[in-house]
Amino acid sequence: MNLFRFAGDILHLLSILVLLLKIHATKSCAGISLKTQELYLAVFITRYLDLFWNFHSLYNSVFKVVYIGTTSMIVWYMRRHRNVKLTYDRDHDTFRYLFLVAPCAVLSLLINARYNLFEILWTFSIYLEAVAILPQLVLLQRTKNVDNLTGNYVFLLGLYRAFYILNWVYRFATEPGYSAWLVWISGLIQTGLYLDFFYYYVQAWKQSKKLQLPS
């Protein structure tokens, strides 16, 4: 465990809490993609299946439970809460699950470290996490005016991924024999998806303007 990894995990947690608090306080989920949230829930469940038998550390286990719990709450709010669900922008959140889930499923069957069910599900979760933000980015693009909290949510998520890359660089430099190609490549692709958003986020911040994405 190094500081980059720790900062990444905290930023990830913070991003989820920002979103959850926004929904809870405003009773609105306008601008939030339910597709992305459900994909993240699928990511966490398929990756953390090992929660009950593959104990690594209390730190990891607590984070796993918290990620699954908080993301479930977001999905619950968006689908079931009587006021929140009315604010869900379903007309714009039209990205198809299948476009992301099917290629990731096929890829995890073809490229994995070991051919068994849990390894394949874990690999699937790595691939799916890389692209799960896409419905959210598409929704932001469509609605143009991004409210501050939604913008901060995506920014924190991107920052979390950036810190994971620093963590890998650090580990590669300090741990002999450390390599994780599958995770690295997926992680680089995932972080790359945020670059465009980052550019506009920083521009808006520098000019103290409201974040607006170009069409």
């Binding site: 796993k64 470290a113 994780a180």
Partner: peptide, 10 residues
């Protein structure tokens, strides 16, 4: 068995 470093991350 290979070391599965990758599984120690979240």
């Amino acid at each position: 068995d290979q070391k599965s470093y990758d599984k120690d991350e979240l």
